[in-house]
Design a protein around this nucleic acid. Structure first.
Lengths: 338, 338
DNA sequence: TCTTTTTGTTTAAACGATTAAGCTATGAAA
DNA sequence: TTTCATAGCTTAATCGTTTAAACAAAAAGA
């Protein structure tokens, strides 16, 4: 039907120049002392013609796109889906749109997404960085492109981030399991160099040590990302009766779900045969025959904070990198009892 | 550090006009007979300076943004998360980025998102339309903005869509429950005017009728979206012993999960006390003490098809609206047995 | 009455790309 | 020798905004 209405169309209709229209519609008519009557006519005409500014043209002129890029491992993972939703909502409040991309924890994918988004003049990034992407982040820093990390961070890289206190999370969960009388608390995690992975392991380990237990590698099940077969093997191995494991702490939601499935298959009863403590949320935790204990991350808060910090940087208010570490909630239920 | 490199920078460095650079970098140097040596120098310089074209400027000129807008009810719902992922992957293959927005099934949100995306010169939409948004889609049609519906469609609106055969889905599920010997098969659904809601109900009803059962409103639990309290009341009412319900068919994933939780609370045993058939996928279906039967939608296929159809429209290949109806997979497990 | 200030508006460049049209050598044909 | 075609390039307009600078008319001051 109707082609898009531009400033020029309004200008012609009212009989003024595009400059005036621009001033008025950007509420700069006071400063630029546009005649009140003219301003009114412009505003009315704009409404009548249902004028919608062309964001692309604005972006080109301003160098700002009013859009932020969200990089996660996988948007179909509810953990990231929930983060995305929180980020979307907060961004929308401030007039920003969100572009997203899934890296699958892969270096090249991550780089490609960053490039694509930069070409689209993204104003800034919110990134759950994949392993080994520190150099990509360095690049962003050097290019002066604002970004905020979520979920993960790099110890030796000065960046803004919003994460949870992972050490404390696993420390508390482990301690809880031990305090219930479990003696052989196993730990299931992904094998990678990411800081939060290490923090979670450290928390687990410290809790063991603090209760007088020694580090025991036979209690650790460390598996590769995206290798279900390998996980199955390793995890079943961990559950062999001779290993005497009486409790398990999973360090991510995907590991938790995969683990619980195998526990079911092997007809191991939770918590009688085996106590279980999971990470993150899942519909499944409530529906398991025995309510699952879990470490609950404040996802909305993480998303909200990340956007807030990013916007501060965009507006140049940020004096320096902001590092936020939020507390998790330990939801202890039947699955961790003795 | 370095500011962005533009065509002009390359042109100056090589000592030619921006036009030549543009021709060469868009592989039009043959047609525009650019000297091979010049072309080579331009290409080398572009690589050396790490030139990245400004997509915004391209968009302004071409009117095309190489981006598509995805409108769903809620990106944190794994159903939409999985769709989003499929769409992202397929879009990326063809050089398109994805902007997303969650409407929360709300009319104004939907409209706002559409406006925002149009202003950003989105090339086309993929939409899971909320109830009552037919007029918004009409608007898109009139404005000649390509879009493809997913998950839902409107019977009296000529649009492209990719949906599943919902009638058949609930028909099969219901028939399966009946064939197992269940006599009072209840149906839990949202109260709305959406076609897929009606199709699912029709499928359920037809299966009942075909097996010689009468329509029975006391077997229907129809609840409002986003009203957990109301759902709880209604659903518990449905489960009262005097109602004699021996099987339940849930018509969405959210209803399934909420329902299963209450079934657990009330200590109703599946399938002994009550057979259950759910819709869509959830981690919880596998982890429930009794493996849950469910209607599995081909999410990747839906996403992929939607993108393909949209791109055909964008390229002007599409002669007319394309309507795709995919088959679901009936995953029958223990929860539906007698 | 003449200058200065204020008010209200227009002009035009810019953002970074694309692309039709124009220009200038050079070599071939007449 | 003049004419024309071709190769190889540049010019300049354009997309829809923004915004500094210029301008004209009216009002105020001298």
């Amino acid at each position: 039907m109707s082609k898009k209405i531009s400033l020029k169309d309004i200008a012609e209709a009212v009989g003024v120049s595009t400059a005036l229209v621009s001033y008025v519609l950007n509420d700069k008519d006071e400063q630029t002392r546009v005649n009140k009557d003219t301003a009114k006519r412009i505003r009315e005409m704009a409404k009548e013609m249902n004028y919608q500014p062309n964001q692309i043209a604005k972006s080109l002129k301003s160098g700002k796109s009013q859009a932020i890029g969200l990089l996660v491992a996988d948007i179909s993972n509810p953990f990231f889906g929930n983060l995305a939703r929180a980020i979307e909502d907060e961004a929308k409040k401030h007039g920003y749109s969100v572009l997203f991309g899934s890296s699958d924890e892969n270096l090249e994918n991550s780089q490609r997404l960053i490039d694509t988004f930069i070409n689209r003049q993204i104003d800034g990034f919110i990134i759950a960085p994949a392993e080994g992407t520190a150099s990509q982040l360095e690049y962003l820093k050097n290019a002066n492109i604002p970004f905020v990390l979520i979920d993960r961070y790099f110890k030796d890289l000065e960046t803004s981030y919003v994460v949870v206190d992972n050490f404390n999370a696993t420390y508390q969960a482990t301690q809880l399991l031990l305090s219930q009388g479990h003696t052989k608390v196993a730990y299931v995690c992904y094998k990678n160099q990411l800081q939060h992975t290490e923090d979670r392991y450290s928390g687990y380990l410290q809790a063991l040590l603090d209760q007088g237990n020694a580090e025991d590698s036979s209690l650790i099940c460390e598996v590769e990302f995206n290798n279900a077969t390998y996980f199955r093997e390793q995890f079943i191995e961990l559950l062999q009766p001779d290993r005497d494991v009486d409790a398990i702490l999973f360090s991510t939601n995907t590991l938790s779900i995969m683990g619980l499935k195998i526990i079911n298959e092997l007809n191991i009863t939770v918590p009688d045969d085996l106590a279980v403590f999971c990470f993150d949320e899942s519909e499944a935790y409530d529906l398991f025959y025995c309510p699952i204990s879990y470490v609950k991350q404040p996802l909305s808060m993480i998303g909200k904070e990340a956007v807030k910090i990013l916007l501060e940087q965009l507006r140049g208010k940020a004096s320096s990198e902001q590092k936020v570490m939020l507390d998790v909630e330990i939801v202890a239920r039947k699955s961790c009892q003795k």
